[in-house]
Design a protein around this nucleic acid. Structure first.
Lengths: 157, 157
DNA sequence: CGTGAAATTTTAACTTT
DNA sequence: AAAGTTAAAATTTCACG
């Protein structure tokens, strides 16, 4: 991974549909060289995918909440995480340090649906108390974070 | 927005680099029809962008944390949000209900850097106490959530 | 890493339903 | 209006130097 790879990655984070020709013009390489580099970055697991971003409110997902999940000792974290993954409303799932085992981000159409989703969460074996924080507005989200692309990767990455 | 639009959106959430020809084959339309629909979805603000997803650990961002931010009355929420947006390490920013004004997700190379970032956060006018939850592992993140695409949008979306 | 070339896709104009 | 057809321009993708 050299500086050119980092530039290509940064460009693809901003515009995941940029053509190889575009990228080549941005970084000063031929389209075929960019193509080859991107293929290697994908194969190496650096670039894990490309995804369209959708305004949630336009597709009927107007309510976002962050839910802390306290564990019970009736199931392993792995089983709980797998069960959380079964719920379509759970968009992200983090295992965390502290009193809670997980923090998840859920996205649902209405607060009514949020209530139902919380009920489903609490019915998962290994899930104890939940602590829900309702999101009032998303100021920004999943922003391209190039902090790691400006310098060399930290040792042991 | 009809069922075909929803299928196109779902496909682009999974693979944001799918060609219009691919999408056409998936949904049973010609490439040019898909092209026209996608253009309208972009213009309508339904599709807001396309982004490559990168494995953070491969670019030297091995530490993730969720930070709750308690407000003081020395700045408006808008000013605090703007200041948070200036920090490259802050990837997402949610204004939330409850004791905290914001919850942000930060991504940094090391715990040392996390300490520095928390210092920068606390130095922002309007930011009081912070409450940091370190992420031990990301089970899944920003998953395509098609819950809203299966049915019609909630009224008032 | 670049060049060149064939296959594919993009994109707009036009036609059809 | 919405979808299909056509065709020219651009891009993708691969072999080779």
């Amino acid at each position: 991974m050299d500086q050119l790879d980092r530039k290509i990655i940064a460009a693809l984070r901003v515009n995941g549909r940029a053509t190889y020709a575009d990228l080549g013009r941005s970084v000063g390489l031929s389209a075929s060289s960019v193509h080859e580099r991107v293929g290697k970055l994908e194969a190496a697991g650096v670039i894990t995918g490309y995804h369209a971003t959708v305004d949630p409110s336009t597709v009927g997902l107007g309510v976002t909440a962050l839910v802390g999940i306290h564990p019970t000792d009736t199931a392993t974290d792995e089983d709980v995480a797998a069960a959380l993954g079964e719920l379509a409303e759970v968009e992200s799932c983090y295992a965390v340090a502290g009193d809670e085992a997980f923090v998840v981000k859920v996205r649902v159409p209405t607060v009514d649906e949020l209530e139902h989703t919380l009920g489903r969460l609490r019915r998962i074996p290994g899930v104890g108390r939940t602590n829900t924080t309702v999101v009032l507005s998303t100021r920004f989200e999943s922003r391209p974070n190039n902090a790691g692309l400006d310098e060399e990767p930290a040792p042991g990455a």
